[in-house]
Structures are given as structure tokens and as C-alpha cells.
């Protein structure tokens, strides 16, 4: 499982995390992707990075499906805490709660947080 927990642009963690997801997707593995805490900001819609000079990578998240990564989740509480709903995101992850996150972690062999 790959977890996005960091906002984009302020640091490179989310972008390089995405690069890692796309590579992992090329392997025949059971991969899931989860957005929690500030990681949600990486998939917020309406980004325009022109003024910063940094490439806007949020559209790339739409390619997850093309990489056969279909298990994509977002944490309910993290969304609500930031005043966002799935309508504000560039993709449509399945909404889960903290206890489901905990259960998924126990079920996964590897857990990478970016």
C-alpha cells in the first residue's frame, strides 16, 4: 500500500511518491493507494501552478486506472477536517474511515508513506 500524507509543491514527497506508484503499478502486484492527512491536497482539483513554475502533477493521478491501480481510497476524517469532499478531488477514491485504514494496514505486507 502506498500512502500519500504530504501536500504537493511545498515539498517533493507527494510527486516522487506518485512516480513510485506508477512504477509499482507496472508490476503484477496487489497495490492500493490511500490519501490521508495533507496527502489529500495532492488530489485537490483546480490547481494552477503556473505562478510557481512547478509542474502541476495532479492530472497524473487520473492515470492510476490505466496502470491497473483500482484500489484508491481517501480517509473521511482527513477530507472533512480540510473542508473538502470527493467532489473537490481530481479522482474519485472510495471513502473509508480510520478503523478501515488500520485494518488495511494490518492486511498489507508493505506500507510506504510519502
Amino acid at each position: 500500500m502506498i500512502v500519500f500524507r504530504t501536500a504537493p509543491y511545498g515539498t517533493i514527497y507527494a510527486f516522487e511518491g506518485l512516480e513510485n506508484v506508477l512504477i509499482m503499478g507496472a508490476y503484477d502486484q496487489d497495490i492500493s493507494v490511500l490519501f490521508i492527512d495533507d496527502g489529500i491536497y495532492a488530489i485537490k482539483d483546480g490547481m494552477n501552478t503556473e505562478g510557481t513554475g512547478i509542474k502541476n502533477f495532479s492530472p497524473t493521478f487520473r492515470a492510476l486506472e490505466a496502470y491497473d491501480i483500482e484500489k484508491v481510497y481517501v480517509d473521511k476524517e482527513s477530507l472533512e477536517a480540510r473542508g473538502l469532499s470527493v467532489d473537490d478531488l481530481v479522482i474519485e477514491p472510495e471513502i473509508i474511515d480510520a478503523s478501515q485504514v488500520a485494518q488495511m494496514m494490518e492486511d498489507q505486507k508493505n506500507f510506504f508513506i510519502f
Binding site: R5, I36, D37, D75, A98, V101, A102, M105, E106
Partner: peptide
């Protein structure tokens, strides 16, 4: 908030 997130998103007894 790392400690809080670790506590929140983890199974009991971990």
C-alpha cells in the same frame, strides 16, 4: 501530527 496519525490509523495493541 505524526504521533497522532500513528495512533489514529492503527489497530489496537500495535
Amino acid at each position: 501530527s505524526d504521533l497522532e496519525s500513528a495512533a489514529k490509523y492503527s489497530a489496537k495493541d500495535s
